[in-house]
Simulated assay, not measured.
Amino acid sequence: MDDDHATRTTPLEHVRWGIIGCGDVTEVKSGPAFALLPGSSLTAVMRRDAAKARDYAERHGVPRWTGDADEILLADDVDAVYVATPPSSHAEYVLRAAAAGKPVYVEKPMAASAAEAEAMVEACASAGVPLYVAYYRRALPRFELVRERIAAGAIGEPRLVALDLHVPPPASPGGVGWRWDRSVAGGGMVMDLGSHALDLLDHWLGPIDTVHALHATRLAWSSVEDQVVAAFGFASGVQGTAMWGFNGAASRDTMTVFGSEGSVSVPLLTEGPVIVEGAAGAREERVVPHPAHVQEPLIATIVAELLGRGPACPSTGASALRTQR
């Protein structure tokens, strides 16, 4: 079990959430889930542009809005904090939440660097508050089906992993957003999107302990790596390869785990079935739709843990730190 779970607070009767950074990711993916889940509510939202915070609050029925993070972090009506800003400010707000003694849920990638991620884990552990990270695919039914099939031996002994993710870049450098800005994003698109696959593999197969990689920046206007190839090994002995490309016209999205008796594959970002090919020609193909709010299953585990009613959340600071490294 991850060390984060040793810092669980006394169970709450109800979890009142405050959001720092109510931007795009909170509109559908995450924000509504805090108010929909039993035992949970969204009390307040913050954005540096207070007018945008007010607009969000009015559209989503949130009682309170502010342009000052302290009015979330130090508020008596906020029990837990969700940090949904770009990666460059994750460490600052997580450390401040820990100092305020509040459980914190932070967007992925966890931080702009491994050193910042380590400081976040240490601060929350010292403060005795849990740290959760929004690698929400760990709780989505589609990817849980993959984990369950691997654990059940449907492909035999896992031996090899192959990742292939290619996403065309923006048509022009104008308005490309923070993911292409190294000072804000840290590792750029590879860290933002590629980390989802690495985190899932950690969940399915255990820690990666060896990595060899090459990277390049092909787009003249890009300040971050837009192409990475890697070979990696797991502590379990499984080996893997990955190709991530964000600089060409190709669109590809496959994750495959090969075993001694078959394979299981699923797309990471796009829609598609889970395909399990086992011994003696056995084949299972299942379409598993995502919920309307894709972070809701993971947030449900956080709420249940904070209420003392359920199993531990599968995505913590400790697990996300392995992905960050």
Rank of each mutant, 00 (worst) to 15 (best):
G174E: 14
A112H: 09
S223F: 00
T43W: 08
G248Y: 06
P11V: 13
L37D: 04
T316C: 00
V238N: 09
V28I: 13
A320G: 09
R138T: 11
I299A: 03
W17Y: 10
G248M: 10
P32H: 06
V184Y: 01
L306K: 06
M255S: 01
P170G: 10
T66Q: 11
V78L: 08
E107C: 11
A134S: 15
R322G: 09
D226P: 08
W17F: 15
S222E: 00
W204T: 05
G177T: 11
A57Y: 05
I302E: 02
A91Y: 01
R59S: 15
G39I: 06
R325E: 02
R179C: 06
Y93A: 02
L37H: 03
M46I: 05
V28R: 15
W180A: 08
R182Y: 10
L269Y: 11
W178K: 09
A125N: 08
A154K: 09
L140H: 02
I299Q: 01
A242E: 09
V129W: 04
L205Y: 03
S30R: 10
L74H: 08
A6F: 07
H203I: 05
S223H: 04
D202S: 10
I72Y: 04
R8D: 05
M191A: 14
P32W: 03
A250S: 13
E58M: 13
A6E: 12
G194M: 00
P169K: 07
L219K: 01
D2K: 04
H293D: 07
